[in-house]
């Protein structure tokens, strides 16, 4: 059934369409104003790549490519988890540092004012 020429042509057309869609995902990742945009588009690219790998495993008649798809889905999930958690931590640290600096500034200004008096 997969040897049929109709199936092969359909697979190739669908692969080309998915590649074009991937390019638009990449565009969103480049343009995205926030870091959440980029992460979201990375997640979408992962989903599309899984579908592409599944189609390829039928097209080339290599069943081991499905293992690759499983590992790929796991890795894309892990990437999103890690990056979002690390970014939240870094942002909170940065915020705390800024607040401490502002507090120091206020204290310093008060000292200067008292010295003038």
């Amino acid at each position: 059934m997969i040897n049929n020429s109709v199936t092969k042509a359909a697979f190739i057309i669908i692969l080309v369409i998915l590649a074009i869609l991937l390019f638009f995902c990449l565009l969103r990742a480049v343009r995205g104003p926030k870091i959440a945009d980029r992460l979201m588009s990375v997640n979408m690219i992962g989903t599309m790549i899984i579908v592409i790998i599944c189609i390829l495993s039928l097209f080339l008649k290599e069943s081991y490519l499905m293992d690759v798809a499983l590992v790929y889905s796991m890795l894309s999930f892990l990437a999103v988890v890690l990056i979002s958690k690390v970014y939240m931590g870094v942002y909170a640290e940065h915020k705390k540092k800024q607040e401490e600096e502002e507090k120091e500034k206020i204290v310093y200004e008060e000292e200067v004012r008292n010295g003038d008096d």
Partner: peptide, 13 residues
Amino acid sequence: VSSHLISRMETST
């Protein structure tokens, strides 16, 4: 889960 983490990152930052 990944959607939840992304949205949580967005709302907290």
